[in-house]
Amino acid sequence: MVDNVGLKVEIDIGSSKFTLLNTVSSKASLPPGEFVDAIVEHGLSDAGTYALTCFVSYTCNGEGQFKRSYRFPALAPFAVSHRVVQLDRQLLVECLIENSLDGRIYLSSWHLDCAEGFQSELVTDIASDPVSGNSGPLLKQRGCFSLVFRVTPKDESADSATLRQREVIGNLSLAWQVPDGPRGCMDGHQIRVRALQVPNLDLQVVECPKSVTVEVPFELELEVTNRTKESLQPKMSFDLRLMGAVKLQGPCQRLLKLEPGQRCRLPIELVVTVPGLHGLQGLSLADPSVPRVDFGVLCDILAF
């Protein structure tokens, strides 16, 4: 007969340790040939090497104890990367999901938990698996799948500058299942964008044709915004070298007059000399009262 049998089970990763079972306070007696077993569970939220340690204490012709340790790796089921593109008052968030396991895995569900004041909508069209019933795709080893979300502010009065000032959009949560095997959740992938300083003078394209014909002039409409509390007379300049195959029809500089907070629309005439997809860039705004602002690619122009 073995008396005062106690079992303690711990799991640790790095400096974190968790007790999964402790029967030391309610010790049992085991007759010859008998045994005691237990099932323990613990969610593995971080990738890394875990150590599961079992401590056994007992009394049999004196007190005794021993322990057994088992090490095992835990891998994140997915490697996630993302990119964010702003389109006026909305953000398009593309999340690339890659299977990190050696076998196949279902991406069974997903959710983008947005920051306060914002809401998300899935743009990607996904068909469910008619055999397994899973609503998401089955990814083979190193297989990838793209999820695209549309993020918009709940406040209808919020403008594009509100989105530009965001640093964290939200957190992506993914649920997974191994075919005929376990399932789980992967939380905490933070969707971040680089914080952008809102310029005092802003410029964006508000009207642009879907496609144009080479060597045929077309009109594009710009909108200039004065975000200061002063009246400004900014000068818009066009760098023909940076504009490349997109040629300006008219003067290379335009003088505007804007009251505080005012927006002004400005039509310009352009012509594309080479077929292909061309980015409209090389535009800048300058005023003696505020720093000069150079804009990158404002839009893409497809020419045939």
Results as ranks from 00 to 15, higher is better:
residue 15 S to F: 13
residue 16 S to H: 12
residue 19 T to G: 09
residue 19 T to P: 05
residue 21 L to F: 07
residue 22 N to T: 11
residue 24 V to C: 13
residue 31 P to G: 14
residue 37 D to V: 02
residue 41 E to K: 11
residue 56 V to Y: 02
residue 57 S to E: 13
residue 76 A to L: 13
residue 81 S to F: 03
residue 88 D to Y: 04
residue 93 V to E: 04
residue 95 C to N: 11
residue 99 N to P: 04
residue 99 N to H: 02
residue 100 S to E: 13
residue 104 R to Q: 14
residue 104 R to S: 14
residue 107 L to N: 03
residue 110 W to N: 03
residue 117 G to R: 00
residue 118 F to D: 00
residue 119 Q to F: 03
residue 123 V to N: 13
residue 123 V to S: 13
residue 125 D to P: 06
residue 133 G to P: 03
residue 133 G to H: 06
residue 134 N to M: 11
residue 137 P to M: 10
residue 145 F to N: 08
residue 146 S to V: 07
residue 146 S to Q: 08
residue 155 D to I: 02
residue 159 D to C: 09
residue 163 L to G: 01
residue 164 R to N: 10
residue 166 R to C: 13
residue 171 N to E: 14
residue 171 N to K: 11
residue 172 L to I: 06
residue 179 P to L: 07
residue 194 R to S: 10
residue 194 R to F: 03
residue 197 Q to G: 10
residue 199 P to A: 07
residue 201 L to G: 08
residue 202 D to W: 05
residue 204 Q to L: 10
residue 207 E to N: 12
residue 207 E to S: 11
residue 210 K to N: 14
residue 211 S to T: 11
residue 214 V to K: 12
residue 217 P to C: 09
residue 222 L to Y: 03
residue 228 T to C: 06
residue 230 E to N: 00
residue 237 S to M: 08
residue 240 L to P: 01
residue 246 V to S: 01
residue 251 P to V: 08
residue 252 C to W: 09
residue 254 R to L: 05
residue 254 R to N: 02
residue 255 L to D: 06
residue 256 L to T: 00
residue 268 I to N: 00
residue 268 I to F: 02
residue 281 Q to F: 01
residue 286 A to L: 04
residue 286 A to Y: 00
residue 289 S to K: 15
residue 291 P to D: 10
residue 302 L to D: 07
